[in-house]
């Protein structure tokens, strides 16, 4: 191969390499577009802190197999971040003080705090850490680890994202989640029927509603 031919081959190879790099490299506008999308997602994924005053944690349980009675926890803390357009990036972390249980009867509340039920001295908190959020029709499924009574179990809650707004100039958002647990799964078996069903002094299934209002940090 003479010198001219070698230069020609080298030039063609160089042009091909430059073309390949050019094709592989996104245009400036494309890069800007991607950055903009990421920024939008980040902006929409605002973190909200629980507004304790306007947040409710309500539970219901069967009593003697004949009726349901309800109670609530008065102390919940935590934060969440969520964008309905990008649910997978959402995060929900909450803690509930077990000694804040309130059923409208002080005797029963004291008993619920003690060794027979929540064992508040050893387990002062119930915690929830989300692991996954996914769309399910017009609602969402909130999957996470619930730690209660020294036992951690994965639960799935049906979540209704109620929306966002502004309260006295502070961005706010809220949702309502509903789920059920078997209290026997968490080692809470006082007054449980021997068949683990709902017919004991207290049923096994506990239905929970967690309605949270959050204010932007």
């Amino acid at each position: 191969m003479n010198k001219t031919a070698a230069i020609a081959v080298s030039s063609l190879a160089g042009i091909a390499a430059i073309a390949a790099i050019a094709v592989a490299t996104p245009s400036r506008s494309a890069v800007e577009g991607l950055a903009s999308t990421a920024q939008t997602a980040t902006l929409n994924l605002r973190t909200y802190k629980v507004d304790k005053v306007h947040t409710s944690v309500i539970f219901g349980i069967r009593h003697q197999g004949v009726t349901n009675f309800y109670g609530r926890f008065n102390e919940i803390d935590g934060e969440f971040s969520f964008d309905p357009e990008n649910p997978g990036a959402g995060s929900f972390n909450f803690t509930i003080a077990t000694n804040s249980v309130d059923t409208g009867n002080s005797d029963r509340d004291r008993h619920l705090r003690q060794a027979d039920f929540f064992n508040s001295r050893q387990f002062p908190q119930i915690t929830f850490r989300s692991t996954e959020v996914r769309r399910s029709g017009d609602k969402f499924e909130l999957v996470g680890d619930l730690s209660l009574h020294g036992v951690t179990k994965r639960i799935t809650a049906e979540m209704d994202w109620i929306g966002t707004g502004s309260i006295r100039g502070t961005p706010a958002a809220g949702f309502e989640a509903r789920f059920s647990i078997k209290r026997s799964d968490f080692g809470m078996t006082t007054y449980l029927a021997s068949d683990g069903g709902e017919g004991g002094g207290l049923g096994n299934t506990v239905n929970l509603i967690v309605a949270v209002e959050g204010l932007a940090n």
């Binding site: 050893q122 080692g187 078996t189 021997s194």
Partner: peptide, 17 residues
């Protein structure tokens, strides 16, 4: 065992059990 509805472990985290 019957008191705990057949849900028990030998060494639970819960000291009362």
């Amino acid at each position: 065992v019957v008191l705990n509805g057949y849900h028990w472990t030998f060494w639970p985290a819960n000291g009362t059990l």
